[in-house]
C-alpha cells in the first residue's frame, strides 16, 4: 500500500494528488474490512441495512410515520428502488413550534444488488415503522455446481 512516489514526466507528482490517492486507498481498505458494529453514514433517506446469503438478500429500512400505501418498491434488473413520501404533521391553527427535527416529503433511493432477483417471490413487510424486504435470488442466477465426469 505504501508505494514510492512516482516521478512524473514533469517533476514530482502533486502532493495533493498523492494525498487523494492515499485517501482513496484508505477508504478501499476500510470498505473491504466491513465492521458491522459500526454502521456507516446514509447518503439519503431512508437508511438501509442489507443482509445476504447464497439464496438472496434481506433489506431493512426505518420509515417511521410513513403509510405502507405510500411506499413504492420497484425492481428493475438488479436495481432496487424504495420511494414514497411522509406526510407532514397536521398542526392546527395557532400553534407555537418549539422543535422540528422530523422531516417530511418525498424520498427515493436506489440500490444495485449483487444478483438478479426473482421478483415474483419478493416479500415486503412493514411493521412498527420498519420496512422488511425479502429478496430471493433468481434461480437462473444462482451458482451451479458442475461435476466433472471421468471419461
Amino acid at each position: 500500500m505504501f508505494r514510492p512516489m512516482r516521478r512524473r514526466r514533469y517533476g514530482f507528482a502533486s502532493p495533493w494528488r498523492e494525498m487523494e490517492r492515499f485517501q482513496r486507498e484508505i477508504n478501499q481498505l476500510l470498505g473491504e474490512t466491513f465492521d458491522e458494529s459500526r454502521p456507516g453514514y446514509a447518503p439519503g433517506f431512508p437508511a438501509i441495512n442489507v443482509w445476504a446469503n447464497q439464496d438472496g438478500a434481506v433489506v431493512t429500512a426505518e420509515l417511521p410515520g410513513v403509510n405502507p400505501e405510500d411506499i413504492d418498491i420497484t425492481i428493475v434488473g438488479q436495481t432496487l428502488t424504495i420511494s414514497g413520501s411522509r406526510e407532514p404533521e397536521d398542526l392546527g391553527e395557532d400553534v407555537k413550534l418549539h422543535r422540528q427535527e422530523r422531516g417530511f416529503g418525498k424520498f427515493a433511493r436506489s440500490f444495485e444488488l449483487p444478483f438478479l432477483i426473482d421478483d415474483a417471490k419478493v416479500e415486503a413487510m412493514f411493521e412498527k415503522g420498519v420496512l422488511h424486504l425479502s429478496l430471493p435470488r433468481a434461480e437462473a442466477d444462482k451458482p451451479r455446481k458442475i461435476t466433472v465426469k471421468t471419461a
Binding site: F34, P39, A47, V50, W51, A52, N53, E62
Partner: peptide, 8 residues
C-alpha cells in the same frame, strides 16, 4: 443471513 452493508 450475514449483515453485508449497514447504514443504521
Amino acid at each position: 443471513f450475514d449483515l453485508v452493508y449497514s447504514e443504521y
